[in-house]
Design a binder for these strands. Structure first.
Length: 282
DNA sequence: AATTGTTCCAACCGCCCTATA
DNA sequence: TTATAGGGCGGTTGGAACAAT
C-alpha cells in the first residue's frame, strides 16, 4: 500500500514562523498531542509541511525548553561531551535539560569553537595546536597503540589499552577555560560519577570503528574500552567485522572480558550505537 | 546618518535508518 | 524482499540584529 506523500512542499509556506502559527501549533499540540507529524499541520490549521512543524515544536515551542543564555557549567559540559563523542548533538543535548540539539549545535558553532581556538585548542581533536604539531612531526615513528592492532599482538596491546588516557586535555572554569593537565590522569582515576563519560567514550570508539571497517579490503579492526563493573575491571574489546551501511545487516562483533577471559558475541544493530547497547557491554 | 562587515540562530536541506505494507 | 513514508540527525544557510567604519 502506498502512503500519502510526507512532505508535499508545493504551495506550502516556508520561512520564519508568525505568532499566529505558533499559537496554532501550541494549541493543537498541547490539547491533542503530536501523533503523526504529516497529519499534524492539517489538523492544526497550518499550511506548512509536517517536518517544518516538528522542527518548530521540538526546537522552540515544546514545554520546558530553556531560552536563556548557556551557563558556564553547560558550556563546560558541552565541550567535555564533544571531546568524548564528537558532534552527536542529540546525545549531548540529553545531558542539558531544557536544551535542544539545535541549540547546542548553534552554540558550539558560533561560540565554543571560537573560544577554543582563542585558547590555542583545536576544536576537532580538543588538543593544543602545539601538541598537534608535535604529533605531526612524529607521524611514522609511533604505533597507533590501543586503537588498531593485529590479533597476533593481543597481549601487548591489552596493556596499552589499560593505560589508555582520556581525550580531553583541559577543563573549563566559571571564569573561562583553564588547563589542568588532566590528560596525564589514567582512566582508572576518573571518579565514579564520571561513568556516563565512559559510556560516551565507548560510543565514540564503536562509531569510529564502524565508520572505518571494511571487511573486504582491510584486516579486522579491534577497538578497546575499559570499564568498571561491580568492582571488577573489564577490558571490552569490540571486534567489528562488517561495515554497517548495509541495511538491516547487523554489525557483528565480540567483546573480551578480563574477568571471564572469554570472547562473547556482540551484535550491533546499526552504526548509531545507542546507550543501552553500551551499558549492556559493561 | 549611511554603508559595510560580523555575529547569531531559526530554519532548511539532504541523507540515513526504521517501520510498515 | 522490496518500496515507500516517517522521523532523526548533522551540516549549512538566509537574513535579522548589531558593531565598526
Amino acid at each position: 500500500m502506498v502512503r500519502p506523500a510526507c512532505c508535499e512542499k508545493l504551495h506550502l509556506k516556508r520561512g520564519l514562523w508568525t505568532e499566529e502559527e505558533d499559537a496554532k501549533i501550541l494549541a493543537h499540540g498541547l490539547k491533542h498531542g503530536i501523533g503523526n507529524w504529516t497529519a499534524f499541520p492539517k489538523k492544526a490549521g497550518l499550511t506548512r509541511c509536517g517536518k517544518s512543524c516538528r522542527l518548530r515544536w521540538t526546537n522552540y515551542l515544546r514545554p520546558n525548553l530553556k531560552h536563556e543564555s548557556f551557563t558556564p557549567h553547560e558550556e563546560e559540559l558541552i565541550v567535555r561531551l564533544h571531546a568524548t563523542i564528537g558532534s552527536r548533538w542529540p546525545i549531548i543535548a540529553q545531558q542539558l535539560p531544557g536544551r535542544t540539539d539545535n541549540d547546542v549545535k548553534n552554540y558550539w558553532n558560533t561560540k565554543l569553537k571560537k573560544k577554543l581556538s582563542g585558547m590555542g585548542i583545536d576544536h576537532v581533536t580538543h588538543k593544543p595546536f602545539s601538541q598537534i604539531l608535535a604529533d605531526y612531526g612524529n607521524i611514522g615513528g609511533l604505533p597507533k597503540a590501543g586503537m588498531r592492532m593485529a590479533i597476533g599482538s593481543l597481549n601487548k596491546d591489552l596493556k596499552n589499552a589499560i593505560l589508555m588516557k582520556p581525550e580531553l586535555p583541559y577543563s573549563l572554569s566559571t571564569q573561562g577555560f583553564s588547563n589542568i593537565n588532566s590528560h596525564l590522569m589514567p582512566m582508572t582515576m576518573i571518579p565514579i560519577k564520571m561513568e556516563p563519560f565512559k559510556t560516551l567514550q565507548a560510543i565514540r570508539l564503536v562509531t569510529e570503528a564502524s565508520n572505518s571497517t571494511n571487511l573486504e579490503s582491510s584486516p579486522p579492526n579491534l577497538y578497546f574500552m575499559k570499564a568498571h563493573c561491580h568492582h571488577h575491571h573489564h577490558l571490552l574489546l569490540v571486534h567489528l567485522l562488517r561495515k554497517s551501511r548495509q541495511p538491516r545487516r547487523p554489525l557483528a562483533g565480540a567483546i573480551f572480558s578480563l574477568k571471564t577471559r572469554f570472547f562473547q558475541p556482540l551484535m550491533l544493530k546499526n552504526t548509531r550505537i545507542k546507550l543501552s547497547i553500551c551499558r549492556w557491554t559493561c
